[in-house]
Each structure stands twice: as C-alpha cells, then as structure tokens.
C-alpha cells in the first residue's frame, strides 16, 4: 500500500470468508462458497473508501466481516492497529460503538413498535455515550444533524417516508459517536431526488464529524460521487483498487472497464465505447481456474486460463490484478 503519513483506521489483510455448502451426497467432499477470497486493503481516517461490484462479488460479506458479524475463515482485520478477532469483551463493546452500519432498507433496521426517542435512547444507554440528563439535548442535536423536525422523536418508523427513514438510520448510527460507518447499499432503495438529499447529507456529516465511510454499492455513479478511493470486486477477489479519478479516467482491468461502459448514462449525446461482456457470473462454489474473469473477458488468453494474476501495484496508488494491465487499451 502507498505510504502516506496517516496510519490506517482499518486494515484488512488476506481476508478469506468461506461458507460451507450442504452436501448433496454423503461421500461427497466438503464444498465451500468462496464468498471472499484473499482480500487486502486499508482505509485511512476521514476518507470514503467504496467497494463496488455486482451481486455475489463478496462486497457485503467483506462489510459483515469488518463489523465482526461473521468470523473470518482466515486473515485479519485490524481497527486502529488492533486485531478485531482478539478483542476482549470490554474492548469489543467499545469497538461496536466506534463502528456503525447503515443498511439498504431502513425500515427493516428500525423496530416498528418503538418511537424514535426510545430507539436513540437505547443506543446511547447501551454504549453509555453520555450523562442521562444530556441525552435529551443530544437527541435534538441529532435531529438537527440529519434534518428532521424535533417532533419526529415521538413518532414511530411507519410514519416516515423512505428518505426520512434513511435519515433516521443515519441518526441512529451517529447517536453513539462512531468513527467509521459501514454503509451497505445505503442509498440504493431511494428515489433519485431523495438519494441526492441523503448523499449530500452524508458528505456534510463526514466533514463536520470527521467520519470515515466504507461505502458498499453496486451503483458506480453514486460511488464516483462520494468516494476518495474505490475497490472493484469480482467473484470474491479484488480486481482493481485506485483513487476515484484514476479509476474513472484510466481503468486498467477489463472488468472495471466493462462495468463502467455498462452504466446507462442519462444523456443522449454521450457516446461511449461499449465493451460487451457476455454470459453470467460463474458460481463462487467452483470458481474458474486462473483469472476468475477469464470466462467473460474479451481479452483472455491461455495464460489467463491457467495462471491466477496477483493484485499488483502499477503506479503508487493504483493496484490491479490483470496480467495485461499495462498493455491493454480499451
């Protein structure tokens, strides 16, 4: 990784996450879904790092491992230099306060029978964020932060619209003063006009509270808007990591290029070179040998079918895992 002055807030090293598959026959060898297979990256404080990819690429599984919702098969995740798998009970509680998550469907993550006040109060008392007497002020402050009226506190989740619920999800995450927020498809369920409001809000909060975001999304235009650094995943592997501008200006992996060219652009004047990739994503139970993308890659050679490419650095901030990253031109 490029050495900058800052130490990373999050460091993921050789993370593997395999899930066993139910046997179909008794004597069959045990099989695994290789949801995440040897993934390494780091996140610097105060920045937004995004993970993009299509369904089944392992982006959400990576997020879950970072939240310590699943224990990794192998590899380590370090938060501020501490291995999160080895935290003591007390440390784990503090960790849970530092890292928060916002999911796609805000309604599913809000208790339908609790008022917003009860919800925020519970979060704050579990983490013991502040004195009981000051909590009231904190709640009003939170409502201000996410742009909801004060009387929202007395209401139930069903009384809010989708965009408002996502604001509540954000308020709930902010209630415990987190440092890092994992946003798993946080704006995907929202209509564009509301999505824009929530994205602006998230950017504003990041500046004000010096938050770090790990933003997981399938939507490249949203990712482009919010990220400093972008990780592209395919079938459990990282295919490319680069700074925002670098990735969009000069993608080096054919898959990244295909993803970029597949986005429909709301402008009839933009003509782009389309790389057609045929077929579907192969099964992660039995991923292709060699480069995992070779079955769909228009540039694949015999070498790609047999030798798996390493994720290697091609200039100081740009990493890509393709044998022909330097020579391909799209």
């Amino acid at each position: 990784m490029p050495s900058k002055a800052k130490t990373p807030i999050l460091e993921v090293t050789h993370l593997k996450q395999y899930f066993p598959v139910k046997k179909e026959r008794i004597l069959e060898a045990k099989r695994y879904v290789q949801a995440v297979d040897d993934v390494s990256f780091s996140v610097e404080p105060g920045t937004t790092v995004s993970i993009v990819g299509e369904s089944g690429c392992g982006k959400s599984t990576t997020g879950r491992a970072i939240l310590r919702l699943d224990d990794p098969t192998s590899g380590t995740i370090e938060y501020n230099g501490q291995d999160i798998a080895k935290l003591s009970k007390k440390e784990l509680k503090a960790f849970r306060g530092d890292i928060q998550v916002i999911f796609q469907d805000p309604f599913a993550s809000l208790n339908p029978r609790r008022t917003i006040r009860q919800m925020l109060n519970e979060a704050m008392s579990i983490q013991n964020v502040m004195d009981k007497t000051k909590r009231e002020d904190r709640m009003l402050e939170l409502m201000d932060l996410v742009g909801l009226p004060y009387d929202s506190l007395e209401r139930l989740p069903h009384e809010f619209s989708g965009g408002q619920r996502q604001r509540l999800g954000i308020a709930r995450a902010l209630a415990v003063n987190p440092k890092l927020i994992v946003c798993d498809e946080a704006v995907s369920a929202l209509d564009v006009s509301v999505q824009a409001q929530v994205l602006n809000l998230m950017k504003k909060l990041q500046k004000e509270l010096n938050l770090t975001y790990l933003f997981i999304s399938h939507d490249l235009s949203v990712v482009k808007h919010i990220s400093n650094r972008i990780i592209v995943m395919y079938l459990g592997k990282i295919v490319e990591i680069a700074d925002n501008e670098d990735l969009f200006q000069s993608p080096r992996h054919p898959y990244t290029q295909a993803l970029l060219s597949a986005i429909p652009i709301p402008d009839v004047n933009v003509k782009r070179t389309q790389i057609d990739i045929t077929g579907d994503v192969p099964s992660p139970i039995n991923p292709p040998k060699g480069c995992r993308f070779h079955t769909r890659c228009p540039f694949a050679t015999e070498h790609c079918r047999t030798v798996e490419p390493e994720l290697r650095t091609i200039n100081n901030t740009h990493q890509v895992s393709c044998h022909y990253a330097e020579t391909l031109s799209f």
Partner: peptide, 16 residues
Amino acid sequence: DSIPKINEVQEELTPM
C-alpha cells in the same frame, strides 16, 4: 440534476 454524473466532478448534488 439529482443524478450523480459519471462524467464530471461535482462537490455537491442539487436535490429537489
């Protein structure tokens, strides 16, 4: 205006 543009850099979106 609400859609983040893939081919330009925008500091802030202009939502309705």
